[in-house]
């Protein structure tokens, strides 16, 4: 059998057959009226399908472009909103201080994510070449979601809020008390705990929790959830609060990396002391 086919290939039967069939089909289509009509109709249909397919693809591409540009627009809007928020807070403290803290936001797409482990990470599609570096915050409009811990040229690894070691510096809106937000309930990706609020603070269920901005990782005043319940943990002078957070880390797509500008001076000052 194999010998038969190889001999057929060598004898040139196959190309000759194919060429002659092409000639025949073109003769048929050209000089036979009914076949001509059928061919024209079929070709039209194929062309129509191709056109439709092409239109869909280009629509898809333009939609993708629109999404990207909308992500950029949203990033700028968030930027100015967050900066205004942050400066507003500072202005309350010291009205002579000119607004100078501002943020730069880089839109990114989540390309890998997990919520089921004890320590969860996500990967985003922007890296060192896009201006990312370690210890930058990652946010969505609903609130912060993680911190960049490692960058490669084109990707970055983000430590999710859903991580045993995450401690976000937050405060109770309009009350001023600050504490740390941690993740303890491994089964629930939307429930976190607020610790270190002193027991003399006046708190209420439904209080809004927002970022404090102390760490420079996240902008100050970014609301991220509300208090569900609270109690005083035994043998301590601090509240323990159950907070339901707004960002849905289980369904992330478009995120923004926040870079706070002009942080060197503050960090330099802070690194000069040792808390231990």
């Amino acid at each position: 059998m194999a010998r038969f086919f190889s001999s057929m290939l060598r004898s040139g039967s196959v190309p000759l057959f194919l060429i002659l069939e092409v000639v025949c089909v073109s003769l048929i289509v050209r000089f036979n009226s009914s076949q001509h009509e059928i061919a024209k109709y079929s070709l039209g249909r194929i062309q129509g399908k191709l056109n439709k397919w092409r239109t869909e693809v280009s629509l898809q591409l333009s939609l993708q472009n629109r999404l990207d540009s909308m992500a950029a627009v949203q990033a700028r809007l968030l930027e100015s909103y967050l900066s205004a928020n942050d400066n507003h807070l500072l202005l309350q403290v010291d009205s002579f201080r000119a607004p100078r803290d501002s943020f730069h936001l880089i839109p990114a797409l989540v390309v890998n994510n997990s919520i089921t482990h004890r320590n969860n990470y996500m990967t985003i599609d922007k890296g060192r070449l896009d201006g990312l570096k370690e210890d930058l915050g990652v946010v969505v409009p609903e609130g912060p979601i993680g911190i960049v811990i490692k960058v490669s040229d084109h990707y970055a690894l983000v430590m999710s809020l859903l991580h045993q070691q995450t401690r976000v510096s937050v405060q109770l809106k309009n009350r001023g008390y600050f504490g740390s937000l941690v993740w303890k309930d491994l089964r629930n990706p939307r429930k976190m705990y607020l610790e270190d609020i002193p027991r003399h603070a006046r708190v209420a269920v439904g209080d809004t929790v927002e970022t404090s901005g102390f760490s420079d990782i996240f902008p100050a005043g970014m609301a991220l959830g509300k208090v569900d319940s609270f109690w005083i943990s035994p043998a301590s002078d601090f509240y323990e609060m159950e907070v339901s957070i707004w960002p849905d880390i289980a369904s992330l797509r478009h995120v923004y990396v926040v870079e706070k500008l002009n942080t060197e001076e503050k960090r330099f000052l802070e690194e000069s002391v040792n808390h231990e």
């Binding site: 057959f17 000639v23 025949c24 089909v25 003769l27 048929i28 050209r30 000089f31 036979n32 076949q35």
Partner: peptide, 11 residues
């Protein structure tokens, strides 16, 4: 019927 018999017989 140019090509009709030819295509079949070539095949």
């Amino acid at each position: 019927s140019p090509g009709v018999h030819a295509s079949a017989l070539t095949g």
